[in-house]
Design a protein around this nucleic acid. Structure first.
Length: 219
DNA sequence: AAAGCGCTCAACCGCAATACC
DNA sequence: TGGTATTGCGGTTGAGCGCTT
């Protein structure tokens, strides 16, 4: 086990059951913080970083095991469309029990493949179909075909033409799920740099990624 | 049977942000 | 206020496994 062999002060490679047990006991006593001190207290030759990662990705009691569901995948695609690769942890935060590492791996494993398949299908349809689409938007299009979440086609602000790559829409209009009003937009006009700024990142959960925002229609 | 290959996912790395002294 | 420690994140790596030849 272990990679990049050479002299290492810290033990590397996969965690054993014994190491997990020792780490868990230590966290029970001292809490899941001060990782470098926990690493020392365990007596394991692991770095604080390694202990933290093991806890977050594997040992936490609320970790959800098993396959990603259709609903979860749908949400991942939609949030990735909005946030890109930058905020895996935020995406994971919308999926209880899932970790950012898991979401990232899942994206690389499953969804990227779907995208590749979808874009090669687009290419087969000729240059007009493939010209304007990046991989992500292709995936969203594919997903939308199966999805039942749409904005109100009649009254609400038309979002079809909205350019999500540059900024976010101004809207406080309702949106609908299966014909019933499911929530309100709570999105202000922001450039993406503003959106990623400290202020808005800290308020993302309430403003853009609150319960209602799971249902946002991403074009 | 075994060698080669591709895939998956746990773990690591480097960097940036934040907290603490 | 500046230096150091800690935490958190995205990108990357590679061991191990299963499938194919």
């Amino acid at each position: 086990m272990g990679r990049k062999l050479g002299f290492q002060l810290c033990h590397r490679g996969s965690w054993t059951r014994e190491e997990d047990q020792i780490l868990l006991s230590c966290i029970e006593v001292h809490g899941a913080k001060k990782w470098s001190s926990i690493a020392t207290k365990t007596g394991l030759k692991r770095s604080g970083k390694s202990c933290r990662l093991r806890w977050l990705n594997y040992l936490r009691p609320d970790i959800k095991r098993g396959n990603i569901s259709e609903e979860e995948e749908d949400l991942i695609i939609r949030l990735h469309k909005l946030l890109g690769n930058r905020l895996w942890s935020l995406i994971a935060g919308r999926l209880p029990g899932r970790t950012d590492n898991e979401i990232k791996n899942y994206w690389n494993k499953v969804i990227k493949k779907k995208l590749q398949r979808a874009s090669s299908a687009h290419e087969c349809q000729g240059p007009q179909a493939s010209a304007a689409t990046d991989a992500t938007s292709t995936a969203v299009e594919v997903k939308e075909a199966e999805c039942s979440v749409y904005p109100d086609a009649s009254g609400s602000q038309a979002l079809e033409d909205y350019n999500w790559s540059n900024s976010l829409p101004i809207s406080d209009s309702p949106f609908y799920l299966d014909g019933e009003m499911a929530g309100n937009w709570a999105v202000r006009e922001l450039s993406l740099p503003d959106f990623y700024s400290d202020h808005y990142c800290s308020s993302l959960d309430g403003v853009l990624l609150g319960p209602e925002a799971d249902l946002l229609y991403f074009k």
